[in-house]
Computed example of a mutant assay.
Amino acid sequence: MKIWTVANQKGGVGKTTAVVTLAGWLQARGHRVLLVDLDPQASLTSYFSQDAEAASRSVYNLFDDRRTRAADLLLPTAGDGPALLAAVPALATLDRQLGSQKGQGLILRQALAPLAGQFDNVLLDCPPTLGILMINALAAADRVVVPTQTEHLALKGLERMTRTLEMVNRSRPHRLQHLIVPTMFDRRTRASNHALEELRSRYQGTELWSGVVPVDTRFREASEQGKSLSQLAPGSRGAEAFLRLLDDLLALDHNEADQRVVA
């Protein structure tokens, strides 16, 4: 079971869109997928028409009672969509409740471990703030995907995120790999092109994805219907960009697995 954490310390960069669209393509290839909403704003939960205000089963239960089984909290999504661990607003209280206690950063990793035989891929949708939820998501991750809007202010959020990843790596025996994904790219605008150039000058190699996710109004249509864009319009620019991203993520996972075998 591979766990990908989708995170950035700035909101509005396309994290939820990335989670949903990657999940749709994974399912199209026969993968068993679980989505975990860790954001108190519950955008991912709402995407699939779940009422975060009324949810009695959510990821919050894992933190509130360590004896809770994640398998008992799973919610279905429409049709044959991915399974969902929903968010509730009460997640916003966890830093106050648990922040000073030791060993709270591994709760999610330990809770997800028993699901290894049930799912092939888990995608975690993070809040845009550094706290116990993001720390848990990073501790559980096999890889971090960092969507970054191609505009100047988003690059500042990316700087904070990369510093956080460096901090996390100092406490891990093996380096947590990440991939920065330029999103909402509009080749018609000077600002978007300049931001992409800046990204490519600062980040190189396997840190930065070679492609871009373009602006595509079909993402909004997919959200309104509670579907992945890979279902609604698989030939659209946005869907095809995420398909290329998925191919590259799977290739990175495969190459790293081979390297571990050789080592």
Rank of each mutant, 00 (worst) to 15 (best):
M1F: 04
L243R: 14
S201E: 15
D120A: 06
T206D: 15
M161R: 05
S228Y: 11
R32W: 04
L123H: 08
L74A: 04
D258I: 13
L123R: 11
F63R: 01
T68P: 03
Q177G: 00
L74C: 06
D80Q: 14
S46T: 14
A137I: 03
R67A: 14
A83L: 09
P182I: 04
F219S: 02
Q149D: 05
D186K: 02
Q27M: 04
W209G: 06
R220K: 13
V261H: 13
H31F: 05
V20C: 05
L44Y: 08
T148S: 14
A139E: 13
V144Y: 03
G205E: 12
T150V: 11
Q9A: 00
A86D: 10
L115Y: 09
V146A: 07
D142P: 09
L165M: 12
R244M: 09
T206W: 10
P128I: 12
V6P: 12
R32Y: 03
R187K: 09
R172G: 03
D120Y: 05
H178W: 13
L155C: 08
P173R: 14
K227C: 11
V212F: 10
D247H: 13
G157P: 03
I3M: 01
S192R: 03
S228D: 12
A90F: 03
T77C: 08
Q97C: 00
R96P: 00
T129A: 15
G99A: 12
D216I: 06
K10N: 04
F63T: 01
F48R: 04
S228H: 09
W4K: 07
F185Q: 00
R175C: 00
A141H: 07
W209K: 07
G211T: 11
A18N: 08
K227T: 14
S210G: 13
A191N: 05
A191C: 00
K102S: 12
